[in-house]
Design a protein around this nucleic acid. Sequence first.
DNA 1: TTTGAATTTGGGGTTTTCCCTAGGATATAA
DNA 2: TTATATCCTAGGGAAAACCCCAAATTCAAA
Lengths: 215, 215
Amino acid sequence: MIKVLIADDHNVFVEGIESLISGSADIEVADRCYTVEAVEARLSLSPVDVVLLDVSFPHVEDGLRLCELITQQYEACKVVALTMHDDASLIKRMVKKGASGYLLKNTTKVELLQAIRSVHQNERYFNASITHILLNESPRGRKTATGADQKPNLTPRESEVLSLMAQGLTTQQMATRMFVSAKAVEFHRSSLLVKFRVPNTALLIKTAMELQLID
Amino acid sequence: MIKVLIADDHNVFVEGIESLISGSADIEVADRCYTVEAVEARLSLSPVDVVLLDVSFPHVEDGLRLCELITQQYEACKVVALTMHDDASLIKRMVKKGASGYLLKNTTKVELLQAIRSVHQNERYFNASITHILLNESPRGRKTATGADQKPNLTPRESEVLSLMAQGLTTQQMATRMFVSAKAVEFHRSSLLVKFRVPNTALLIKTAMELQLID
DNA sequence: TTTGAATTTGGGGTTTTCCCTAGGATATAA
DNA sequence: TTATATCCTAGGGAAAACCCCAAATTCAAA
């Protein structure tokens, strides 16, 4: 019997998933959790095989953090991300955080059960539409809607500046933290703009996020 | 017996709603429709009392149009909007289009049934969190791990500026495209910084992307 | 050794961003 | 009508970002 934990703060969803699973002979709903804290508490009590995790739990960042926590602390426990968002970068981020499967919430019963069984056997599962989304964005050389290119090779300093920029620091603040002059920082940011082929900070941050270079 | 039509393109939701309703003695699910066309076809056959309408069907504009169509052509048929979005302006737009009730998808069974019964009796129904939103009060002022806050309600101009910023346009370029002065554009960007509680463009873009407000 | 990439610092300039203030339009409520 | 609020529109000024230039240092590779 595959024990499944449903982690979703949307009651209707929890009911729906439970309904879809209820007919199955080899899968059972071990528990339902409506908060991140509840999930952590539940997992510390006894193991489950698969967690069906809503990415927005309640916010995207929470879902990502929880996914990372589960896959790191409970290796045997697989995570299937379940969400409304068909955003390619979000899917990639979830997978990066350890999710074994990713389903949209308009998934079918067959697909849901198949996904649970697959990840339980250490396989990965993405439904057709997800695959389509990933294929539409990632092929080599192909341009996305915003023209996001391949990841440029960044120097250590450039990565550092990019990371600090993503935290909202100004040039002066970065210079102080890095123990260099503001001019040095400016040079690195300028290099980033060139390497990413963007005209300003706004597009730099957006592009870097799409390329998973910023969390 | 109150006949309910579920209009949602997300299978899990439909299942969940049906499951929540199934225990009720005075409410039954007359049909489920996964597309706008299916809803129109179904309503033209025989009347239902209440339509549980997902606003994103599949897009917000579709939901709004369908809501207007239903309430105009089938006066006896009430519409309860059901959505993930707790966006105040969206709620107002739905109500303007004739929706009698508005529920978030994290609603409870009790609330869902109560909403159906209320609108069937020509009353309106909004749950507590919706009321809070309409009163412009933040229902919960908590912060996520990354400090990402709730989606602020943006004015049309603010949304426009945010979108153009995400495309890498400068203030001057935005001003030209929007037929206003650069100073007007600057004000809207400034408003965005305040609403998102960020100090500069870099964090604004990052936060907006995390909140799925930028593609 | 030479070459090259990365890092650092500086000067000087333009453009953009950001913060303050405030008038005018519009819609709703008292 | 008079408030009251929200949005849009700007101006001035200060700060930051952005772009050109040039030059010294380090460190690894050719």
